[in-house]
């Protein structure tokens, strides 16, 4: 280590004596200010790096400064960015979630709280009565999205969890999470069949008639 260090040009430079001009500082200060001024003018009238997309650019083409005036101006997140969760609705607006607890099981931060309930009149009878995510505890790993067998939870909102003024406000409930484009999958056929609920005592013949199928 020492050996390498001693031989590096940087080290040699460090050991150089400062010249008189450098010792006086004034000349060096002016040189520094010149660099700052160059960037200032360049930013003000020059062209910004056009690979950077900016949402909602303020100003009308004149302002080509590379610096983004966050939060008035925002860069879009890249595709696949794990943002704020949402509970995906079905076309009828109910959550796709069936309260299977897979996300809560996979979540390393244990920040998903679910209470399951039972529909009386739906073919898929299980649904979340409560579904809450504590976005402060969430480590944004996306395991919940991976774990979900129903494509019912996504992090595709493109926004991040908002700043809040107190901790309880960071716990988002079902109503707050449910939203965005509805999703239907071909395997969802089960959703739309008649609720095959019967109440005992059921006679054997009746049972035979109740069966649909192909």
């Amino acid at each position: 280590m020492d050996h390498g260090h001693a031989e590096s040009p940087r080290a040699a430079q460090d050991e150089q004596e400062l010249t008189l001009g450098e010792k006086l500082f004034l000349r060096e200060t002016i040189k520094g200010m010149a660099i700052v001024a160059r960037h200032f003018w360049k930013n003000l009238f020059g062209f910004r790096d056009n690979t950077t997309e900016v949402l909602d650019r303020k100003g009308t083409g004149v302002n080509l400064v590379t610096t983004i005036n966050y939060p008035e101006e925002q860069k879009p997140y890249p595709p696949g960015y794990r943002g704020m969760h949402r509970l995906v609705p079905r076309v009828d607006g109910r959550p796709r979630c069936v309260a299977c607890y897979m996300c809560a099981t996979a979540c390393p931060a244990q920040c998903i709280y679910i209470e399951a309930g039972e529909y009386d009149d739906q073919a898929i009878e299980k649904y979340p009565v409560r579904f809450e995510i504590d976005e402060l505890r969430c480590i944004v790993c996306g395991f919940c999205v991976e774990a979900c067998p129903k494509d019912a939870i996504r992090m595709d909102t493109g926004t991040h969890a908002p700043a809040v003024l107190s901790r309880p406000l960071a716990v988002f409930d079902k109503e707050a999470l449910l939203g965005g484009a509805p999703v239907e999958l071909s395997s969802d056929s089960m959703t739309y069949r008649a609720p095959l609920k019967t109440v005992a005592p059921m006679g054997s013949n009746e049972g035979g008639k109740k069966m649909g199928g192909h």
Binding site: P195, K197, A200, M202, K210, G213, H214
Partner: peptide, 12 residues
């Protein structure tokens, strides 16, 4: 093909 459908919630 489609799976056979049967009663799913019979309260015995």
């Amino acid at each position: 093909t489609y799976k056979l459908q049967k009663p799913k919630r019979e309260e015995f």
